[in-house]
Simulated assay, not measured.
Amino acid sequence: MLMWKDTACSYIDKISNQLIEISDEIHRNPELALKEVIAAKLLADELKKAGFEVEHGVAGMDTAIVAVHPEQSKGPTIAILAEYDALPEIGHACGHNLIGAAALGASLALGSMKKDMPGKLVFMGTPAEEDIGGKITMVEAGLFKDIDAAMMFHPSAGYTMTGRKGLALTEVKIEFYGKASHASGSPEKGINALDAVIQTFNGINALRQHIKSDARIHGVITHGGVKPNIVPEFASADFYVRALTDEYRDELVKKLESCAEGAASATGATLKYEVGSPSYQSRLMNETMGDAFEKNLFALGEPIVPLPEGSGAGSSDIGNVS
């Protein structure tokens, strides 16, 4: 086992400049969800050169990848996951270029000595984490059915830890339909859809003191009217609802709906309430794998630096894999 680790580390050192260049190239060319053409090709090409059997466009997504090392024997099937999509306007602020390059490096290092190792090695390129949750699509397509263990890392600003929980997340879109009228000449004839959106936010703010401290409801107004002298006949908002468990997240989605229904009743507007799909599930950590990862970090001289107590958590489609 120790010899394998030493061999892997030596191999990573040998290809480190190449991995950094791949990471930088992905960073220089940020691509949004399901459009990660450059990133997917970069990763797939390197895997092909290393002898992996690469399948592009799996699960109906052009930029999704499954690459299997040809040396296979009895033992566990291990998947190393890569992300490589960017965010609108701010590019790779979440560091998915690093996730992709690190997953590639780990796969190449293990692949270089796979003939001496049991089991099956799989690289899985998972697009659109920032949007539709590509891993969810891949789970639903059955691509994780025969995977015994899956792992990935996510970069952080100065913190190193394992076992961090992830929040379940559901997106909710609300629309209100009212009646336009002149806001000064005949406001009494109008039904203000924007007022309904604002009242929904007010209801949520009143609700905050009665929800668990690790839960989150946050939103933005996506349409608020056309001109100040026209009573808005249409207004809309998008919300993310998050909680530490899937069950409590679902409970909060219903509470948000009650806030919107109350706003519709108060203003006379008509409500359209749409719960987005798919939802991100809460992340269930494998403590045994986490402990092993920590030991390897320690062996490499990387200190464990946890987040300060009380820090918030994010959400990811890796929860649906877990």
Rank of each mutant, 00 (worst) to 15 (best):
D6R: 15
I12W: 10
K14H: 14
I15A: 02
S16L: 15
N17Y: 13
Q18V: 11
L19I: 11
I22M: 12
S23W: 10
R28F: 12
K41P: 11
A50T: 03
T63N: 04
T63G: 05
P70V: 01
Q72Y: 06
S73G: 14
I80G: 04
E89L: 10
A93E: 01
G95C: 02
L121A: 05
V122K: 00
V122R: 01
V122P: 00
M124S: 00
G125W: 03
G125R: 00
T126N: 08
D146N: 13
M151F: 14
K165M: 12
L167G: 07
V172L: 11
V172P: 10
K173W: 10
E175H: 13
F176S: 04
S181Q: 03
H182G: 03
H182Y: 06
A183G: 05
P187S: 04
K189I: 06
K189F: 13
N192P: 02
I198Q: 06
Q199W: 12
F201V: 11
G203A: 10
G203E: 09
K212G: 12
I217W: 06
H218C: 05
I221E: 08
T222C: 09
G225D: 00
P232R: 08
F234R: 14
S236V: 11
A237W: 03
A243F: 09
A243N: 11
T245L: 08
K254N: 15
L256R: 03
E257F: 09
S258L: 15
S265I: 15
T267L: 07
G268P: 00
N286A: 12
E287D: 14
E287T: 13
M289Y: 13
D291G: 10
F293R: 00
E294F: 03
E302H: 12
E302F: 13
I304N: 01
G310Q: 04
G314F: 07
